[in-house]
């Protein structure tokens, strides 16, 4: 029973896959490149504070302009959990 509850529904799998896929489709930027950007950002921030590089997330989304999806202004969002500010 516990196994049943823990399993992700196939719909969730599809949604997660699509989200990642569409980010790279929309910016013409491969998932590998996103990983490289992520690693580089982590390296720079780590110079100044201790961060949780494993659970950090980056994504390119397109908000900012008024037209529904706002395709014209892509923005890079980075979500970087800080472990210790005063390193």
């Amino acid at each position: 029973m516990r196994h049943f509850f823990r399993r992700k529904s196939s719909k969730e799998v599809a949604k997660d896959r699509l989200k990642i896929l569409l980010i790279s489709d929309r910016v013409n930027c491969s998932p590998e490149m996103m990983e490289m950007i992520k690693a580089d950002i982590a390296k720079v921030i780590s110079k100044y504070m201790k961060i949780d590089a494993k659970s950090m997330e980056i994504q390119i989304s397109k908000t900012g302009s008024k037209g529904g999806r706002g395709m014209r202004t892509p923005t890079l969002y980075a979500n970087i959990p800080i472990i210790d500010l005063n390193q």
Binding site: K11, K15, L22, G68
Partner: peptide, 20 residues
């Protein structure tokens, strides 16, 4: 299938595509 969690619902699709 949506009910069973094996197909994305209309709101899931709208969420992803962000279009009316």
């Amino acid at each position: 299938l949506v009910k069973r969690g094996d197909m994305m619902s209309a709101s899931d699709v709208v969420d992803i595509l962000a279009v009316s």
